[in-house]
Design a protein around this nucleic acid. Structure first.
Lengths: 355, 355
DNA sequence: ATTCAGTTTGCATTCGAATGCAATAATGCT
DNA sequence: AGCATTATTGCATTCGAATGCAAACTGAAT
């Protein structure tokens, strides 16, 4: 191969008649040989901003097209120390809401010239191995919408890999994060519930090890109390439809009689609503009002029409990608929190409290 | 660097006191130097099945652990001509059913030592650029659950990249594919509908450019006719909830009065059911029966409880991954179709025809 | 024609791991 | 011990593109 490389200044085109492609994909050397230029010239043609004459560019591009040359991103990654790969960590089962974000993030990454390397994380052990995998693949950054321990995060930081958290974060530690703050909206809803005559509320919370879930629950408790509603019962779910249903059962079994239930996410609210209607025979919203968080597409299906607090998933995804690209380009970039406002979707799942 | 590499046979450990890590991640050379062995030895330690003594392995592993060495998958990919990356193509918006498959596929790939490089494809143009992207990243294979033209497929084949279609395929061309054949189930359901006294059916089909959609529609027409039901109307949807609702409206507007509607997927069935109940004031199933395809999780929420034909997504995902790994390991492997049986989920959306 | 600045181009090296080959060490066998 | 095998190990090269540096070229000004 070394002897095939051009020797003296003006390498002649086609001075080597070895067929360019025999099974093997074309490399920059193949293109160089075909165009009668050096490999460096080919490389420069594919790197925007390089010093190259128009004549040379045309010549190279013609040859490149001829053999369908596309630069090898793997080889490029090795020399530039940039893989253009971003690990995207999602938890598969938990929340059917995230696919929307995942697709959006993937698209945005792609327009930024980056590719999403997808990892599903179900447990902390998963996270462990996922981080090692990502590290092996030299990912330029990590967008995490799944659980990650402090130690795992620290490991990534130590390895100088930028991390952006999507809807989760460590409260007592600086980190880069995008999330949604629904406090104003839950305040407004609590106020509205009070005006509708509600006095007794119940809460179906999410897993306590989940930051977003905890925060939503905390805000809800505060908002309800502030508006003069009593929280007569609490149940803990796991974000799933089933746990919304069983959460309602738990509340009833505890002997509580709330007139409104706040669910920490839409999925549980749907489970709760279905259980109320089909098992307990309650009418929603006339017998029981339901409020929730997320604003996922399904929540507005006419069987549900939830009154919920929407997260602006699209803008949050854009922000997450922007934040990761900024940090890939400049690793010194400081931490940043981007907090989006929620928005109430009025829905039809709340009404005046039954008398 | 060349002068740092060990010169003669037994290279002494630590004969070079340059700090191993100064910002830079450890390489096999760093480990080799620390352990006092050659780089090849380190490489062999991380390749299962290599000729290496136990003593050497321990020594290397100790050094590797010390500097947290993990082989660089990018560099490995360059030399082995294997990226261990598989492109997974999904269409983002269309079908909320695929996330389940996507996560499953990702997990399965991961246990096979492969990583999923995620691409969203909305249009044929997208597919074009996605294929080029995937090619640049030297993916070892492609799993496509999205649209792809014959020309695009041919391009991938020409480039010797194995492709597995997930629930789509080209009928008149050999290719490797996993899909679900619901013909027996739809026959059984048609039979059951006839026994329940149904005579007039309507069909809400999917996009005609979608193979699965076309096939389901075809089978449905055949099954219904065979069982003596007349198809009094057909509407075409796009798999979305909204198009299920508008499909029903189209049917009604055409003046048809079916007693049962077959929807080509669950999502449209839910839209159709909600529209029937909340807008047309019909009772499902007593006034109108509904049948569909997919068996996605939501379809069994108690607001819907669809009678639907489930695809075994889990097993299909496993099969897809198995098929792609087989073909990555042996590119000569011939084409294969793996067809899974559907399964009827009885649900509660069909009943005796109203008189 | 000469000089000089500015552009283009090519050369040689680099990234990090894998591997064929040859050298060496370890082991078995007589 | 002596010789033949076999198992380990190291050496040198390779994968494909990017890039610092120097050589060559361009054009303009003198």
């Amino acid at each position: 191969m070394a002897s095939n490389r051009q020797k003296k200044n003006p390498p002649k085109a086609d001075d080597n008649v070895v067929p360019l492609i025999k099974g093997r994909r074309a490399t920059s050397y193949d293109v160089a040989r075909l165009a009668g230029v050096s490999q460096s010239a080919v490389s420069r043609c594919f790197k925007p901003g390089s010093s190259i004459s128009e004549k040379m560019r045309k010549r190279v591009m013609k040859a490149a097209k001829e053999v369908e040359y596309q630069p090898n991103a793997i080889a490029r990654g090795l020399i530039t120390q940039r893989s253009n790969l971003v690990a995207v960590l999602v938890s598969g089962r938990l929340n059917l809401y995230y696919p929307e974000a995942l697709f959006k993030i993937t698209e945005e990454l792609s327009t930024a010239g980056l590719q999403a390397l997808l990892f599903t994380v179900e447990s902390e052990d998963d996270a462990e191995s996922v981080i090692e995998q990502a590290w092996q693949f030299q990912v330029d950054g990590v967008i995490s919408a799944s659980h990650m321990s402090q130690a795992q995060y620290d490991l990534l930081r130590k390895r100088q890999i930028p991390v952006v958290f999507f809807n989760r974060y460590f409260a007592d530690h600086p980190n880069t994060v995008v999330y949604c703050d629904p406090s104003e909206q839950i305040d407004a809803l609590a106020e509205q519930l009070a005006e509708l005559g509600h006095k007794r509320a119940a809460l179906i919370a999410g897993p306590v090890d989940n930051m977003v879930s905890r925060e939503r629950a905390r805000m809800t408790r505060e908002a309800l109390t502030r508006s003069g509603l009593e929280i007569v019962a609490e149940a803990e779910g796991d974000f799933s439809y089933e746990s919304g249903a069983s959460g309602l059962q738990d509340i009833k079994r505890a002997g509580a009689h709330p007139t409104v239930i706040i669910c920490i996410n839409d999925m549980m609210a749907m489970g709760c609503m279905d259980e109320a209607r089909s098992v307990l025979g309650l009418k929603v919203p006339s017998d029981l009002s339901i409020v929730s968080f997320d604003g996922m597409g399904m929540s507005q299906f006419s069987s549900y029409e939830l009154t919920t607090i929407r997260q602006p998933i699209g803008r949050m995804s854009e922000a997450a990608v922007k934040m990761i690209t900024d940090r890939v380009d400049d690793p010194e970039q400081s931490h940043e929190k981007r907090v989006f406002q929620g928005a109430v979707i009025p829905g039809g799942s709340i009404a005046r409290a039954p008398t």
